[in-house]
Design a protein around this nucleic acid. Structure first.
Lengths: 181, 181
DNA sequence: GTCCACATGTAACTGGTTACATGATTGG
DNA sequence: CCAATCATGTAACCAGTTACATGTGGAC
């Protein structure tokens, strides 16, 4: 049940229409909680029905018309409740690790190329995060509420750093592995 | 579409019944791809229908009777195909990061306790992985097919290490943050 | 014989994904 | 007026989750 709360957070940061939210979920919040426009519209409907948000201005009844939402007090309260509530961390769920485990049984043919591709993708993501860090969090001047946002960004940076290192390591092992087993 | 391939891998490592698989998915493979017994039985049915696996011995027709499965050549081929096929990495999807981002808007009240709890859980998981490493991969004698399994374990160790460090860092920031904002 | 653990399953629901539908606005 | 783009939505499907159902075999 995280998507509604991701949307509430985004709307508190800035009231938006469905499409604007969709675009923001392609970056920013989307870096650690992605969503498609179908999910977002469905969830906006539910949130409005529950009285957590409301459509902003003059009535725009239907399709094709832009409709912006803002968070109501009940929505803010629900988000605060959810943020403070205890939640268990989810175990890792990663396909590449599964593929490596499978490769230990059926052989490593063809895997190397995709490992290299993933390494490149993670390096690119890491560079993007570091660019954001340079731009939004120059050293030595974090405003107090920016501290938390910087913390989140650093998690992204550290995770991508982990992947690049691990994949590099994996490719080294592959270099030393006998062909196709 | 990863669960069937996780099951094929597990069955190749050792033919098993549904319940045995369920137990093995509580550790080992389950460390990076978990599954409940309901999922496993459903998937075993599909895999058998597709001719990737077959029930092992004398016919045991129904409920209450143990039923073991082994992988057929077609199943092994499918697993090899899947392992080698190019697949995009999934973006991060983490509730704690979302909660921190929300806390930047609605305040950090109550979050600190759960951060501490998560830190403990990740430390415990890390210790468990390191114990497995000591037991199964003593330094200096990795057999070639064990190399890949060790690589997977090291990913788990490094990820838990990342989380413990990041959570420690986050708690330090919280110590310096003004109360409840 | 009854209870409990073992073992296999069904049903209903939820969140996420993919494909498609429909209306409004704007540039040519 | 036509095509492209913006914007909102519907429908069908799939994987994972939760709750429950049913049968077997052994301990007492």
């Amino acid at each position: 049940m995280s998507l509604p709360h991701a949307i509430l957070t985004a709307l508190l940061e800035r009231p938006s229409s469905g499409l604007e939210l969709t675009r923001r979920f392609d970056k920013s919040i989307g870096y650690f909680w992605s969503a498609t426009h179908q999910q977002i519209y469905r969830e906006l409907g539910r949130l409005e029905a529950e009285g957590y948000i409301r459509a902003l201005p003059a009535e725009q009844p239907a399709r094709g018309q832009k409709k912006s939402y803002e968070v109501l007090p009940a929505g803010r309260a629900e988000l605060a409740r959810w943020t403070a509530a205890s939640q268990d961390p989810k175990p890792i769920r990663d396909v590449m690790l599964l593929r490596l485990r499978a490769a230990a049984v059926v052989g490593t043919d063809g895997l190397q190329a995709d490992l290299r591709r993933h390494l490149e993708l993670h390096q690119r993501q890491l560079a993007e995060y570091e660019e954001i860090q340079r731009r939004d969090f120059p050293p030595g001047k974090d405003a107090p509420e920016d501290r938390l946002r910087h913390l989140v960004l650093r998690a992204g940076i550290d995770l991508e750093t982990f992947w690049t290192q691990w994949l590099t390591h994996a490719l080294q092992e592959f270099g030393e592995l006998p062909e196709g087993s």
